[in-house]
Amino acid sequence: MSIEEELAIYLNKPGFQMFIDAWIFQYKRLGRLGGKIVLDNLDEDQKDCLSGLGLDLSNNKLELTYSQFQKS
């Protein structure tokens, strides 16, 4: 399986949609990619998907700036 296929599978996981929607909202709000997203009350699917990015989800919450996202 190619890296592109693996990425497509990862991005299409059900728990990942909230993360994508938050960045789309930020882009529309700022007119560019930037700022910070905050996701509260993450369910297990969301935590499972986002844990693959190596992020701290210890309180069922994610706070992530765009620069942090780029580094991860």
Rank of each mutant, 00 (worst) to 15 (best):
M1D: 11
M1H: 13
M1K: 12
S2M: 04
S2D: 08
S2V: 01
I3K: 14
I3E: 12
E4W: 15
E5D: 14
E5K: 14
E6S: 09
L7C: 05
L7S: 09
L7E: 09
A8V: 10
A8I: 12
I9T: 11
Y10D: 01
L11N: 08
L11I: 03
N12L: 03
N12T: 06
K13H: 09
G15V: 02
G15A: 07
F16G: 10
F16K: 12
F16P: 01
F16D: 05
Q17S: 12
Q17T: 15
Q17K: 15
M18H: 13
M18E: 15
M18L: 15
M18Y: 10
F19N: 04
I20C: 05
D21G: 01
A22Q: 01
A22E: 09
W23F: 00
I24N: 10
I24E: 14
F25P: 04
F25R: 12
Q26W: 06
Y27F: 14
Y27H: 15
Y27E: 15
Y27M: 14
R29I: 06
L30G: 07
G31W: 02
L33H: 02
L33S: 05
L33P: 00
G34V: 09
G34C: 01
G34Y: 04
G34N: 05
G35D: 01
G35N: 00
I37W: 03
V38H: 09
L39G: 02
D40M: 01
D40E: 13
N41H: 10
N41W: 05
D43C: 03
D43Q: 04
D43H: 10
E44R: 07
Q46R: 01
Q46E: 09
K47S: 04
K47F: 09
D48C: 11
D48M: 07
L50M: 08
S51L: 09
S51F: 12
S51N: 10
G52F: 06
G52A: 05
G52V: 07
L53E: 00
L53S: 08
G54T: 11
L55V: 09
L55T: 02
L57I: 03
S58G: 11
N59K: 11
N59H: 06
N60C: 02
L62W: 00
E63V: 12
T65I: 04
Y66T: 00
S67A: 13
S67Y: 13
Q68F: 08
Q68R: 10
F69L: 14
F69A: 07
Q70M: 09
Q70F: 08
Q70A: 10
K71P: 06
S72P: 05
